[in-house]
Design a protein around this nucleic acid. Structure first.
Length: 442
RNA sequence: GGAGAGAUGGCAGAGUGGUUGAAUGUACCGCCUUGGAAAGGCGGCAUACUCGAAAGGGUAUCCAGGGUUCGAAUCCCUGUCUCUCCGCCA
């Protein structure tokens, strides 16, 4: 959520930033200025009336205590009641309207984010690694995986439906090896603390990180308590997490952290569940787009003045995984039109997939500045300061394990159909250097 | 799933309808005292919104949401969470 006071004081800037995101400020902001004014006027009126009421009730208490008759004052207070209720309803309505506007406005892009309408406006900031050369035609991962009997899409769809996969044998171990490798690297060399959070969260958490109320249709909701109503935080509801960002960022919801504790760096390996509503017919083959995939997520809580530097560092931590695995990639600076709702600046890391002859996103590293901290009410107290402030949150995939898996299949495939194990992964594969054909299941 | 108890400021813990935003203790900050410290003494110490140039007001907040009442931390209803016991269970 962006800051109400900031919008009020910088309306032209906000409009310009929204326009750069491809939004119509008139639609997004509505009649912000007049609603804001109306809200404040209504609040002033209600509070004046309430102040009067409070004075009268005090008067009643005094009169009663001294044994005097308080009937007249009691009657006046009674008559105030409906007036207060009417005005209060107006103030609440205006407040709700303003809240709705603020909650549905995306974060404002940083000044160095390129303006663009879609992914074509993204800028490749760097390329790393040489694309592997093959003396045969490299195949896509689904063909490789099925031929080796390590991936089974048909049985997955039988037991669960479309967009699922089953791993077998050395293939299942490869997934586990990747997760362990990533967690070890981030905890031992990059200073992250490993977290194992719940895989289900409540609505408040999803509001905190920005998935709700706007993106409910992308999530799996587990409770049969009727449809989700924006603004209605049903207590006790459960949603499957779409990313570990949600539980981990919300660890500090409604908390104030001492400045000396910052920065706080967490990494978490979790499954991620996404409904993929609206992506029918897209990436239907292979394990690019699944309802469930595993991911190692990096999350940081930092001082505002450190967030840009920390964003670069976090992105480097994700890149390091790709480099240790010797997977060619490029870093994309996302343009205004391609950034996520809560982000002020995002780098996507895209890995080269020779089987498909294209780059695919394998990590997304974002600086949310105070956007999530404001929604989730996460604060820190600057040393010596009286008032606490919202801190900055960041996160990035480090990496999406499923996509790393398929990148290895495609980049490390050999003419005989087997997979060479990247050097960094050999210790995590019981010393095996090759993944060969597994026992047939059919 | 059944039965019961509870949720108050950083922490502990009073408060069962009326100057209670909330006693008291403790922690924390400042000052006094000291060669320095401890102990002791004095003072300060929630958040959000809103009015105001500021000083300083006002409103709301005692888990959350409703209700009763002139007035609710206190009474009633619903929900959430925590604890105890029983059942079930990895």
């Amino acid at each position: 959520m962006i800051d109400l006071a900031f919008v009020r004081a910088n309306l032209p800037v906000v409009e310009e930033k929204l326009r750069s995101r491809g939004m119509d400020p008139a639609v997004a902001l509505g009649d912000f200025a007049s609603i804001d004014k109306e809200r404040r006027e209504a609040i002033t009126e209600v509070e004046t009336l309430k102040a009067r009421r409070n004075k009268l009730t005090e008067e009643i208490a005094r009169l009663r205590k001294s044994g005097a008759d308080a009937t007249a004052v009691t009657e006046e207070t009674k008559s105030l009641k409906s007036e207060v209720e009417t005005l209060e309803a107006r103030a609440t309505a205006a407040d709700e309207r303003l809240k709705t506007i603020l909650q549905t406005i995306p974060n404002l892009p940083q000044d160095d984010v390129p303006v663009g309408s879609d992914e074509h406006g993204n800028i490749a900031e760097k390329h790393w690694g040489a694309k592997p050369a093959f003396d045969f035609t490299p195949r896509p991962h689904w063909e490789i995986g099925e031929a080796l009997n390590i991936l089974d899409f048909n049985r997955a769809s039988k037991i669960s439906g479309s967009r699922f996969v089953v791993h077998f044998g050395a293939g299942a171990r490869l997934e586990r090896a990747l997760a362990n490798f990533m967690l070890d690297l981030h905890t031992r060399e990059h200073g992250y603390t490993e977290v194992l959070p719940p895989y289900m969260v409540n609505s408040k958490s999803l509001f905190g990180t920005g998935q709700l109320p706007k993106f409910a249709e992308d999530l799996f909701h587990c409770d049969d308590k009727g449809p989700y109503e924006p603004g209605n935080f049903q207590d006790g509801d459960h949603w499957l997490i779409p990313t570990a960002e949600v539980p981990v960022t919300n660890l500090f919801r409604d908390e104030t952290i001492e400045e000396s504790q910052l920065p706080i760096s967490f990494c978490a390996y979790t499954p991620c569940f996404r409904s993929e509503a609206g992506s029918y017919g897209k990436d239907v083959r292979g394990m690019i787009r699944q309802h469930q995939f595993q991911k190692v997520e990096l999350v940081k809580f930092v001082r505002p003045e450190d967030s840009e530097r920390e964003h670069e560092a976090l992105t480097r931590h994700a890149e390091t995984i790709l480099e240790r695995l010797e997977l060619p990639y490029r870093r994309m600076l996302l343009c205004t039109g391609d950034m996520g709702f809560a982000s002020s600046k995002t780098y996507d890391l895209e890995v080269w997939l020779p089987g498909q002859q294209l780059y695919r996103e394998i990590s997304s590293c974002s600086n949310f500045e105070s956007f999530q901290a404001r929604r989730a009410n996460i604060r820190y107290r600057p040393a010596g300061a009286k008032k606490s402030e919202h801190l900055h949150t960041l996160n990035g995939s480090g990496l999406a394990v499923g996509r790393t898996y398929l990148a290895i299949l495609e980049n490390y495939q050999q003419a005989d159909g087997t997979i060479r194990v990247p050097h960094a992964l050999v210790p995590y594969m019981n010393g095996d250097t090759v993944i060969g054909k597994q026992q047939s299941r059919s």
